[in-house]
Design a protein around this nucleic acid. Structure first.
Lengths: 244, 244
DNA sequence: TAGTGGTCTAGACCACATG
DNA sequence: ATGTGGTCTAGACCACTAT
């Protein structure tokens, strides 16, 4: 029925099919923005009922891997998701024009994982991780300081590149250079007073309150890919969430 | 097919059925915690295919109105949702026991709606609203100050009651006394420094940073029911959210 | 063992997008 | 006109829960 490339045949059929499709998306066999085969085609190639195909695709839609449009088709979703952190800090230039945040990598090191990083990324205690310190600016003003941890295994390619070449957005970089696609994230917000080092980085007075956004970013298989802490002045912060 | 009590017959069948079922849940014909009729029963009474019944119920599940358990049935969900705001502030007593927050209504007035309240609750500019000021305490210590606005029409019953009788949780009260069930909410978080009045209420020093949680609570029909602003010391704050 | 929801089939027909 | 996804039917069979 389905060829058995690593799918668990104890799962319901529609989930086995979902896994097959997800695997092909992950393997970039169907490129982001491009359509996947139609329901009828999938029914033929996998020899299952059309309803089962639909169920599998509906699952992928719910997970955000694909998008459907009525008469057009089912398309692999581009990871537009990035930058979404940034919308939580509101910065408006005087004339209200939209402002593009810039990023500077302040440092990049390969170190053995701090205990908390290893725990969050589900690595062995002394596993290697890449640590990035990154500063995000708007109109030359520093606004966000970020500590980012990545599993060295998965993100080897970044250890060899010039940090200046990383560009302003990391998630497209992860996708392009390391084949790692961020699909979802969990964020935890707290407020603390700024440390001396961070006050210097951000150009804040000491004891200013800062918001800390701790983010764990997950791949479409649910594995944690990135652990990130972002700090910015609390006074410029705004965050929205839906409940239920 | 479906009897036409206010459902839009231009909608797909499964949505018409969803609306019918949702109406009966709202009308308390099926009580929270109790099962709704089985798929087969619904198929018979409404004369639609079983798949259509399933689709309608799946929609209700997604909206959080009912819960399904395999061999048991489909149950109207109890609004356990309450109290969820409170989990965003972490308070631990010295011995780590779980602490029940207490509530005190500091004031209750019926006033004509402030502009922002009217806007949020989608009322006419000078419509009457009930304004509650409420203080939440843990171990006798004040921790959260809340301003709450409710449409007077919908929540008439509260204008007549003794505020001391309200109890510690408002949402069950809304449900019991006014038949209003909160199904979802949108929260927006910001940080500001405390005003003198609130500093007094919360027992904080002036200029302490506080987190403001502005919440709009919606009924299952998507109508805004309550507008609430909660303020608490930023140092005791913790908030989690899933993205995508 | 009976009753419930969960999976799966094999279609028909409709609505939307595009050439 | 063709091809896509969206709705709907009328079942069969399986898995879970309770008695």
């Amino acid at each position: 029925m389905l060829d058995q490339t690593g799918v668990d045949s104890r799962l319901p059929l529609y989930l086995q099919l979902r896994d097959q499709l997800a695997a092909q998306i992950r393997a970039q066999i169907w490129q982001p923005g491009q359509p996947i085969p139609s329901e009828t085609e999938l029914r033929n190639t996998y020899q299952v009922a059309i309803g089962t195909v639909r169920r599998a695709i509906e699952t992928l839609v719910a997970e955000g891997l694909v998008e459907r449009t009525h008469g057009k088709g089912t398309f692999v979703r581009k990871a537009r998701f990035d930058n979404s952190l940034f919308r939580f800090f509101r910065f408006e230039s005087a004339d209200g024009r939209p402002l593009a945040p810039r990023s500077v990598i302040v440092s990049r090191k390969t170190i053995s994982a701090p205990p908390r990083a290893a725990e969050v990324l589900r690595l062995k205690p002394q596993a290697k991780v890449i640590e990035l310190l990154r500063l995000r600016t708007v109109d030359e003003q520093p606004v966000l300081a970020e500590n980012i941890y990545l599993c060295e295994q998965r993100f080897k390619a970044l250890a060899g590149m010039e940090p200046a070449q990383f560009g302003d957005l990391l998630y497209p970089l992860y996708e392009r250079e390391c084949g790692q696609i961020v699909a979802s994230a969990r964020e935890t917000l707290t407020v603390e007073t700024v440390t001396a080092a961070q006050a210097r980085l951000l150009g804040l007075k000491e004891n200013t309150p800062v918001v800390v956004i701790e983010r764990i970013a997950f791949g479409s298989d649910g594995e944690p890919l990135e652990w990130r802490q972002s700090r910015g002045a609390a006074s410029k912060f705004r965050y929205s969430a839906e409940i239920r």
